[in-house]
Amino acid sequence: MRTVGGARRGLGLWLLQRASALYLVLFLPVFLLLLWRAMPLDYAAWRALFTPLAMKLATLLAFAALLLHAWIGLREIFIDYLRVLPLRLTAYFLFGALYLACLAWAADILWSVG
């Protein structure tokens, strides 16, 4: 049987994984700093932290980066261990759907803050 493989594939996802990691590295210290400045962190302070649109967007982007990073990592594991193609595609799809739902949920929670 012919083995197909080849040119010009794989770089995009690899780069996206790097980019998402970079965003998280930049976001997390800033987020922790903001948390620290908002001390004591009662319910009102916690809500106030997420009230500005910029904070909502930055946090949503962080969730997107995290989920994308995780999905690409899972894809690598599936490539190594799920050798049956229909099974692998199902796993891609299921986790993709799950993570998209998580992202939508994160957006819903963030924008529920007035």
Partner: peptide, 14 residues
Amino acid sequence: LDYVEDPYRLFRCH
């Protein structure tokens, strides 16, 4: 570069 740019040939390296 064309030859190695592949999910298996190169990007199995973690």
